[in-house]
């Protein structure tokens, strides 16, 4: 009984998700267009910031929607944040080492 109820919820969840997925995909393509256009302009060092910011937004979209982080148990999000923070610490520390040597 319980199971079939859960299953029904699951089916409904998936039914609404097609359109949602397509929207996110369109968003991802739009961000790609924006980032390519921006890189064509003469923005100097802002290019690095804008492209990395857009890449980050795109990966958050993929992780949240396509990889289901948003609908998954919160423990997954915590795991991902810990992993990303670890990588960020590696990058920052290495960079400080080079920047101030």
């Amino acid at each position: 009984m319980q199971l079939s109820e859960e299953h029904q919820q699951d089916v409904n969840h998936h039914r609404t998700s097609y359109g949602h997925y397509v929207l996110v995909w369109l968003g991802l393509l739009a961000f790609t267009g924006i980032t390519v256009t921006l890189s064509g302009m003469d923005l100097g060092r802002w290019v690095i910031i804008s492209t990395l910011a857009i890449a980050s937004i795109k990966s958050v979209l993929v992780a949240n929607v396509f990889m289901h982080l948003k609908s998954e148990d919160k423990v997954f999000t915590v795991f991902v944040l810990v992993a990303v923070a670890t990588l960020a610490i590696f990058i920052t520390l290495t960079f400080f080492d080079y920047a101030f040597k």
Partner: peptide, 21 residues
């Protein structure tokens, strides 16, 4: 190639939704 990979991500996500139905 970026557009190809983004689209392939969409189709994988949809295939999971499809099998769920």
């Amino acid at each position: 190639n970026t557009m190809i990979l983004l689209t392939s991500s969409l189709t994988v996500a949809m295939s999971i939704a499809a099998i769920g139905q």
